[in-house]
C-alpha cells in the first residue's frame, strides 16, 4: 500500500509540475508576453527595394521613420503599430541615385533602430 501511495504522489506532483513548466514555456516563447522589443527589417534584404516592416512586441505604439540618402533626409512618416502587430511600409523610390540609403525608425521618440543599403548606380 505504501508503495502505491509513493507512486501515486510522485506521478501527481511530477505531472502538475510538468504542466506548470509547459505553460510557463508557452508564455515565454510568446514574443509579446512580458516582452519589450520591436524590430525593423527590409522586406527584400538582397534587392534594391527599401520597403521595410516594423514588428512590434513592445508597449510603444507610435513609430516615426525617416529615409535618408547619404545622410540627407528624403522622406519621413509616422505609423502606429499595436503590440503584437506588424506594419509594412511599402516605399517605392525608383529614381534614387547611388549612395548609402538609411532607414531610421524611432519608437515613442527615443528608442531607435537603423537599416541601410549602399546602392551603386
Amino acid at each position: 500500500m505504501s508503495n502505491k501511495k509513493i507512486i501515486f504522489a510522485t506521478i501527481i506532483i511530477l505531472f502538475l509540475s510538468s504542466i506548470f513548466l509547459d505553460y510557463r514555456e508557452t508564455l515565454q516563447e510568446n514574443p509579446n508576453y512580458q516582452k519589450n522589443w520591436w524590430s525593423a527589417s527590409f522586406d527584400d534584404p538582397s534587392g534594391e527595394s527599401i520597403a521595410f516592416a516594423i514588428d512590434n512586441h513592445s508597449s510603444a505604439g507610435n513609430f516615426h521613420w525617416e529615409v535618408s540618402l547619404d545622410k540627407k533626409n528624403l522622406i519621413s512618416g509616422d505609423v502606429n503599430v499595436a503590440n503584437g502587430n506588424r506594419k509594412d511600409i511599402p516605399l517605392n523610390i525608383s529614381e534614387l541615385g547611388g549612395g548609402k540609403i538609411a532607414v531610421t525608425v524611432t519608437a515613442n521618440g527615443n528608442n531607435k533602430e537603423e537599416l541601410d543599403k549602399t546602392l551603386v548606380k
Partner: peptide, 13 residues
C-alpha cells in the same frame, strides 16, 4: 547592408 535590427540582434547582408 544592415537589413534587420531588433535591439539585440542585427543581420547584415
Amino acid at each position: 547592408w544592415k537589413i534587420y535590427s531588433n535591439g539585440e540582434i542585427v543581420i547584415y547582408y
